[in-house]
């Protein structure tokens, strides 16, 4: 019985080749729907990740005077790490800052002759965790940073924390409804496309009925074919999305944003592929009924 079911399912996938054009177009449509849905999810998940990462955090950019002694600056960096609430300190010596800048502008550029003569100042990126019961801590830390020896400038965005909080509230209110709506739209597009492509196989269904095939014998190959279309389309769509993500991963990963765009969490990617496969299966079932 399992052998027959497997054989029928394989035949359903193989028979897609008998009507190549409708099924190719359906696969392209599913791929595009999967790509667009994935793109939207990518945007939402990255936004959500950033907002969660920055929730209750404020980043300071601290620039030392160019003439400051590096040993003194490095002592200050050590001290900073022990301050209460400081979660991380990323530091750049003038040479490291130059290297970073060169890499972000033109990785091929040869600036070795500037080694030891970098015009850039020593820099530190300080991430501070702000407890809910101490909203004034950023201001206090800001003042302390400014008071450090040889510090030229300290930048921080006072609206950052408020904005993060508002975005979080908004995302919690709108994210899941948006994902639901997106799923519905993608499902309708994919479902109708696969249903239409399966119509080209209805003559086969008629003939199978005519020769006395049982309903499961007729349905199984069609369901397998629809599911295969959904799965193939979603894998291709996710592949396109991965290529897109690789292309833009480090586009915004530059000072002062430091935003790296990451691919969908695997559970989301799996969920997207599984949903579109299920939609393919269900729409084939509707077509054959």
């Amino acid at each position: 019985m399992i052998g027959i079911a497997l054989r029928l399912a394989l035949r359903g996938v193989r028979d897609l080749a008998e009507h190549p054009w409708p099924h190719t177009f359906a696969c392209i449509a599913v791929t595009l729907a999967a790509f667009l849905a994935g793109l939207f999810l990518l945007f939402l998940t990255n936004l959500d990740r950033e907002l969660h990462a920055r929730h209750g955090q404020v980043q300071f950019q601290v620039y030392w005077q160019p003439a400051a002694e590096l040993a003194g600056v490095q002592n200050a960096w050590q001290e900073l790490r022990s301050w209460p609430g400081v979660e991380s300190v990323r530091t750049y010596t003038p040479d490291e800052a130059l290297h970073e800048l060169t890499a972000s502008l033109d990785p091929e550029a040869e600036l070795g002759w500037l080694k030891g003569k970098s015009p850039l100042p020593a820099t530190a990126l300080v991430s501070l965790a702000v407890p809910d019961n101490d909203p004034d801590r950023p201001k206090i830390v800001y003042e302390r940073l400014k008071a450090l020896p040889d510090v030229a400038e300290v930048h921080y965005n006072p609206a950052q924390m408020d904005m993060a909080r508002s975005w979080l509230a908004a995302s919690q209110r709108f994210l899941w409804p948006l994902i639901g709506l997106l799923g519905l739209v993608a499902g309708l597009i994919v479902g109708n496309t696969i249903k239409l492509s399966q119509v080209s196989r209805l003559d086969e269904v008629d003939i199978l009925r005519l020769v006395g095939a049982r309903q499961w014998y007729i349905e199984l190959p069609m369901l397998a074919g629809g599911a295969a279309q959904g799965l193939a389309g979603s894998i291709l769509g996710l592949g396109l999305l991965k290529l897109f993500q690789l292309g833009v991963a480090n586009l915004l990963n530059v000072p002062p944003l430091f935003l790296s765009i990451e691919f969908l969490p695997w559970i989301y990617a799996l969920g997207l592929a599984a949903s579109l496969t299920l939609v393919g299966l269900l729409s084939s079932w509707v077509a054959v009924r």
Partner: peptide
């Protein structure tokens, strides 16, 4: 109804004017 339809059709051979065969097979 249901599976009895397929059982009936297994007793019957049907031939049509427009053949009703699968052209690619």
């Amino acid at each position: 109804h249901g599976r009895h339809v397929s059982l009936l059709r297994r007793q019957i051979g049907v031939v049509f004017q427009d053949f009703k065969i699968l052209p690619k097979k």
